[in-house]
Amino acid sequence: MAKLAIHHYIDVMTEGQSQGIEELFSSDFCQRVQGLKYPNHSRSELISFLKKQSGEKMNCQTTLQIIDECAHYMIAKVIMKFESFTKTDLITLINEDGNWKVIASIHTYQ
């Protein structure tokens, strides 16, 4: 089930999918972007942004690497290669009463 949640996350971020978006992110979700000029984003800010991007597909190649996984959490690395830069997301998911949710995301850009 954790793998379904991480694939849903990838579809939301790269394919503009917005169905089930509220259920994907935990209530205390936080998105951090590495670098001094980038602010952190709350769950509500990210969901609002992603709903506005509904249907927008990113022109990137995506790879997924599961870093650690057990019955209660998963840490995954999602790499999105665009033409002129690469975005890497380090994602943490937790199992909340049988439902997998993204609790944190840290982005870096190269």
Score class of each variant (00 low, 15 high):
Glu83Phe: 15
Gln31Arg: 13
Met74Arg: 08
Gln34Gly: 06
Glu83Met: 14
Ser42Asn: 01
Ile75Tyr: 06
Asn40Ala: 14
Val78Phe: 03
Ala2Pro: 04
Lys57Ile: 11
Ile67Met: 12
Lys52Met: 10
Glu23Gln: 05
Asp89Phe: 05
Ser48Arg: 08
Gln110Glu: 14
Thr92Ser: 14
Ser105Leu: 08
His41Met: 09
Glu23Ala: 07
Ile10Glu: 00
Glu45Phe: 12
Glu56Tyr: 15
Ile106Tyr: 03
Lys101Tyr: 05
Gln61Ser: 12
His41Arg: 09
Leu36Trp: 09
Tyr38Ile: 01
Ala71Pro: 05
Cys30Asn: 04
Lys87Gly: 06
Gln61Val: 11
Ile91Glu: 00
Lys52Ser: 10
Asp89Thr: 02
Ser54Ala: 15
Lys37Glu: 07
Phe85Arg: 07
Thr63Asp: 09
Lys77Ile: 04
Asp11Val: 05
Glu69Ala: 14
Lys3Gly: 02
Ile79Phe: 09
Val12Met: 07
Thr86Met: 08
Glu45Tyr: 11
Thr63Arg: 08
Gln110Met: 11
Leu50Ile: 02
Asn40Tyr: 10
Phe49Cys: 10
Asn99Tyr: 11
Ser84Gln: 15
Tyr73Leu: 14
Lys57Thr: 08
Val33Met: 07
Tyr109Cys: 01
Gly55Arg: 04
Ile67Val: 15
Glu45Lys: 08
Met58Cys: 06
Ser48Leu: 11
Val33Ser: 09
Gly98Pro: 08
Gly35Leu: 05
Ser27Ala: 12
Phe29His: 04
Ser42Tyr: 04
Ser27Cys: 05
Ala5Arg: 06
Ile75Asn: 03
Ala5Met: 06
Ile47Cys: 03
Ser105Pro: 03
His107Val: 01
Thr88Val: 15
Glu83Leu: 15
Leu64Arg: 01
Val12Tyr: 00
Ser84Lys: 15
Ser105Met: 11
Gly20Val: 08
Asp68Pro: 00
Leu46Ala: 00
Ile103Val: 15
Cys60Gln: 03
Ile103Pro: 07
Leu36Phe: 12
Phe82Trp: 07
Leu46Glu: 04
Lys87Thr: 10
Tyr38Met: 10
Ile21Lys: 08
Cys30Lys: 05
Ala76Cys: 06
Lys87Asn: 12
Leu36Met: 07
Ala71Glu: 10
His72Leu: 14
Ser18Lys: 11
Asn99Phe: 13
Ile66Leu: 13
Lys87Arg: 14
Val78Met: 03
Glu83Ser: 14
Gln17Tyr: 04
Phe85Leu: 06
Lys51Cys: 08
Ile47Asp: 01
Ile79Pro: 03
Lys81Met: 01
Glu45Ala: 10
Tyr109Asp: 00
Lys37Leu: 10
Gly98Trp: 11
Asp97His: 12
Ser48Thr: 13
Tyr109Trp: 07
Cys70Phe: 10
Cys30Asp: 03
Asp68Ala: 13
Arg43Pro: 06
Ile10Phe: 01
Lys57Tyr: 09
His7Val: 02
Val33Trp: 07
Ile67Gly: 04
Gly35Val: 01
Ser54Cys: 14
Ala76Thr: 02
Ile94Met: 09
Glu69Ile: 15
Tyr109Arg: 07
Phe82Gln: 04
